[in-house]
């Protein structure tokens, strides 16, 4: 009887440890992706994105250490830098000046990202190929924008046709299209022409607006932008509301009607009280 009992206990323990060891070994797949960004032909950076699938839903993975490489995903000389993903699963790396020599070697590059293995995830990799390209914005006197997309071929910049791009005006919380057309496609000369139809749009105090042309998530060129400041907006004259007399203003700036009303009530009631205190004095004098 005891032997049978011991056997059952052994089976239960084995099952328990196998479940525990399985649970310890179970790791979710980490999926990495990457984007290349060139803002206004000045700032270049790479964004790595880490996500995983839990219970059939994609979830962003924070705190993943990601190494960024150029043209080779293991050589220390090709390492651009390391970054850690944030709450949104994004890790950003600005292109370091030390990468200039490698960048100048060719018109096309392959960027790679590698995440180091952890208790939760195995090592993961992703690559993206990028051809060097740039956007150029020109304007005409009759408020037209001419945007040209150029790609570097060997040593020469050549126009690129059939690429979608957007033309907009930079505003505080997003970009505003210059007219009703959301997206343009470059012609054989690599250009698009867009008419500016946002007259009287408030600019700064000089009337300056910042135009922006964008290529987004392109398979060959990544994300490119170019900007140009034009005086096509209306001049914005800032009128301070700080001294206005309102109910929500600061101390000493309440509306006149409120001040008059409040002080009139306070003064009249207290005048009565002071008068009555005077009456006490009078009663006192009568009693002397």
């Amino acid at each position: 009887m005891n032997t049978i009992k011991n056997k059952y206990i052994g089976v239960i323990l084995l099952s328990f440890f196998s479940i525990v060891s399985f649970a310890q070994d179970a790791k979710n797949d980490l999926m990495l992706s990457m984007g290349y960004y060139n803002n206004n032909n000045l700032t270049q950076y790479l964004v790595a994105h880490a996500k995983t699938k839990i219970d059939g839903k994609f979830q962003m993975v924070p705190d993943v250490t990601v190494k960024f490489y150029i043209n080779n995903d293991s050589a220390a000389t090709n390492l651009l830098g390391t970054a850690i993903t944030n709450d949104k699963g994004d890790a950003v790396l600005m292109m370091p000046p030390s990468a200039k020599a490698e960048w100048m070697k060719s018109a096309k590059h392959t960027f790679a990202i590698v995440s180091t293995a952890s208790k939760l995830y195995d090592e993961a990799k992703a690559t993206v190929d990028v051809s060097k390209a740039k956007l150029k914005i020109d304007t005409t006197d009759d408020k037209k924008l001419i945007v040209t997309l150029l790609e570097l071929k060997d040593t020469a910049w050549v126009p690129v046709k059939a690429v979608d791009l957007k033309v907009a005006i930079k505003r505080l919380d997003g970009d505003l299209n210059v007219n009703e057309t959301a997206t343009y496609t470059t012609d054989s000369t690599g250009t698009i022409t867009a008419e500016f139809k946002r007259d009287s749009l408030p600019g700064d105090k000089e009337g300056n607006l910042t135009l922006i042309a964008k290529v987004e998530d392109n398979d060959i060129y990544g994300n490119l932008t170019a900007e140009r400041v034009v005086k096509w907006g209306s001049k914005f004259q800032y009128v301070s509301q700080f001294d206005r007399r309102t109910l929500f203003a600061r101390r000493g700036h309440s509306p006149w009607w409120l001040e008059l009303l409040a002080y009139a009530i306070v003064v009249s009631v207290w005048a009565v009280l002071i008068y009555l205190i005077g009456q006490i004095r009078k009663i006192k004098q009568l009693g002397v």
Binding site: V272, L276, Q279, K282, I283, K284, L286, G287
Partner: peptide
């Protein structure tokens, strides 16, 4: 209240004061 002498003038003032206070 040592100054209170039950004078009619004092009562008059007091009554008036209480009425004013009651309204206020």
């Amino acid at each position: 209240g040592s100054f209170w002498k039950d004078k009619p003038e004092q009562f008059k003032i007091t009554d008036k004061a209480i009425n004013i206070l009651s309204i206020t």
